[in-house]
Design a protein around this nucleic acid. Sequence first.
DNA 1: GCTGATACTTAAGATTTGCTTAAGAATTTA
DNA 2: TAAATTCTTAAGCAAATCTTAAGTATCAGC
Lengths: 225, 225
Amino acid sequence: MRILIVEDETSIANFLRDGLEEEGFAVDVADNGKKGLQLALDNIEEYDVILLDWMLPGLNGIEICRNIRLENKAVPIIFLTAKDTVDDAVFGLETGANDYIRKPFSFEELLARIRVLMRKNITELVVFSAAGIEMNIEKHTVTKKGKAVELTQKEFSLLEYFLRNKGKVCRRTRIIEKVWDIHFDYDNSVIDVYINALRKKLDEPCQPSFISTVRGVGYKIESDE
Amino acid sequence: MRILIVEDETSIANFLRDGLEEEGFAVDVADNGKKGLQLALDNIEEYDVILLDWMLPGLNGIEICRNIRLENKAVPIIFLTAKDTVDDAVFGLETGANDYIRKPFSFEELLARIRVLMRKNITELVVFSAAGIEMNIEKHTVTKKGKAVELTQKEFSLLEYFLRNKGKVCRRTRIIEKVWDIHFDYDNSVIDVYINALRKKLDEPCQPSFISTVRGVGYKIESDE
DNA sequence: GCTGATACTTAAGATTTGCTTAAGAATTTA
DNA sequence: TAAATTCTTAAGCAAATCTTAAGTATCAGC
C-alpha cells in the first residue's frame, strides 16, 4: 500500500509520513506541486492513495488533481485543506477528488477516510518469489530468471504453497492437506512425483535443487534475502 | 435517484427533503429509527443513498447501519452527526458507513458528498482493446482490425469481461459469476460454448487464439504492450 | 558396509478437462 | 402467432493432467 503526500509544510508532511509509515504504508513525500505531479505521473498505478494539499507554491492542488485524473481514473485522491470555506472544497470534489479533510484534522480521522477509500481494492499479495523464480497469482504465470515456465495446476499449487511458506519446512502431511485437500494420509507419495516435476522444470542443471528435502519431515525452499 | 433520510428533527428533515427534491432526487423521510430501518429494508436496492442521523430516538444510527449492511453491501450511507468527537465518526465508518458529515453542515457540502458517492461510473473507461480487437462500451460495438464484428449479448459480455481483465487469468467460477450471474457452480460448461463462438468470430485463421486457455483454471487474453 | 526406511524416477492407466457439434428452450422480432 | 435469433444442455471425442505402482537410488543407524 503506497501513499503519495504532496504538502509544502514540512511539519505536517513529516507528521503524516511518520504516522502512515507506522500503519504499514509506504510513503512518498513531495514538498511542492511540481514535484508532486511528477512523482504521481511517473509512478501512476503505483499509488493506492494520494493526499494533496490544497494550497501549494507553484502548481496548486486542483491543477495537480486534474492532471492526475487525465492519466489515472481510479486512484483515490484526498484533499487536505486549511480553507474552511465549503465552496472551495466542493470545487475540489468536482475536479475529480474523492474526498477532502479540513485542517486541523486528527490523524485517526484521516486514517478512517483512507481506509474507506481503499476498502474497495482489498489487495492480497499477488507476487511471490525465491531463488530466481517469480510467481504471479493474478496472471497465473511463473518465470525463472525472467523466462516463462509452464506449470500444470497441481504443480502451480504446490509451488505456491512452498513460496507462501518460503524459509519454513513444509511437512508432507500439511502439503497433502493444503494442496491436495486430503486429510487422512496413509499415502502421500503423490508429492514425490510432483516435487520431481517441479525440479525438472525449475532447477538449474548441475546445481542443488531449489527445493531441499528434509528427510523424514518434508521439503523447504530458502528465502533469498 | 432515490434518497432515504432518517432524521427525527423535523426542521432538518424538511430542509434536506426540499433541497434534495429541488436537485431532482426522489426523497423519502423517516422520523425515527424503526421506521427508517423498515423503509430501508423494504426498499433495499431502491435507494441510491441513505442519510442517517447519528442520534435517533429508539434505534440509533449505528444499529440501523449495521442492519442495512447485512442486507445490502453497496448502498452508500452517510452519517449526519452533531457530535464533533472524531472517535464516534470513526466508529461510524467502521460499522460500514461510507462517509459522515458534521452538523451544522452546508447543503452544498452535503450535495458534494452525495455526488462523490454516487459517481461510480464517471471515471469508467469506455474503450477497451487487445490483440487488434477494440470494444466500445458506449456504442456497444466491436471491431477487429477496424472491421465491425457482430456479437450477441452474451458474447459481448464475455469479451468485455476478458478485456477488463486483460493480462490476468479469468477463472471459470468468476466468469460464471460475473457474466452469467450464477453463484453456485456445479456446471459451467456454457463458457466453453461461448469461448468457441468468440474464437470463431475473432481469431485469425492458422494463428493461436487470442484467448489462451489456462487448463484447470480458466482463460486469459494477453495485454498487448 | 549392511539393512530398513525414505525418497526419486519413470511410465502406464485412469481421470479430468476442454473442444466441438447439434438439438431443443427460451427470447426477441416481425 | 410464426420466424428468427440467441441461449443452454448434452454428448462424443481428444488431449492434458493426475494418480498409481513398481523399480531404483540414497540415507541413517547399527
